[in-house]
Amino acid sequence: MSQLAELQQAFCDALRSPEMPTDALLDAIVDDGLNLQRFNVYRNNFIVLNGDALADMYPVIKRLVGDEAFRVLATAYVRSHPPQARTLLLYGDQFPAFLASIPELVELPYLADVARIEFAWTEAYHAQEHPVLTEDQVSSITADAFGQCQLLPHPTLHCIGSDYPIYSIWQANQSCETDELISLDQGESYVIVLRPEIDVEVSTVSQGAFHFLKQLQSGAIIEAAYEVAIEQDSTFDLGVFLTQHLLDGTFFQINS
């Protein structure tokens, strides 16, 4: 390994670590008695710059746990999951799973699922442009053939199911002014995140609609997707769902 490679890798190791930098690294820095403090500016920048990117992506999580706890979580995340890309646009993709793995957060079991909404929001926000399904495309399909078609959800669609009322929690924390109390007894929620045009939309759907969309996302034909949905949720009404969503940007294409 070249000297430069050795030095740069040692520098990176020390940036990530909470421990004292090695003597070899400190010896490589011009020493005026302050070389550790000088190095620590970079260690602090590494944690703060990447932690700030995480805070930008997860404002609701930050509100839910508080600024101080978020800073501790972000520091641990930046150290265990240093950025893998040259842009920070999607930095934090593992944060929901990371939150789920922290024993101290066991009292906040909804946190990871709320974080999944926030990551889906950012991913949809930066996603490639795609057209939405039009009336012309639908009218080319005969009623008989409809059930055998693949109805493809818009590529920006994310489906997030949870045992907790994560939509209410996410919604109530969109502004700082709220002091709304949300009972976890409200139970499960089924959230969809979508960006048909320029704005990201977050909404809830019924359990049946949720499973229907997930089946369609995996490429199932309409009939097969409906069968799974109705099995999960006997109240699912396909006609009502399609009247509302077929042409509202939820879908991308229909293939016979």
């Binding site: 890798q9 520098f11 990176c12 920048n45 590494f46 990447n50 990117a53 240093p82 893998q84």
Partner: peptide
């Protein structure tokens, strides 16, 4: 870019 990850500083 020192390793496979990025400092972003």
């Amino acid at each position: 870019h020192g390793y496979e990850w990025f400092t972003h500083d």
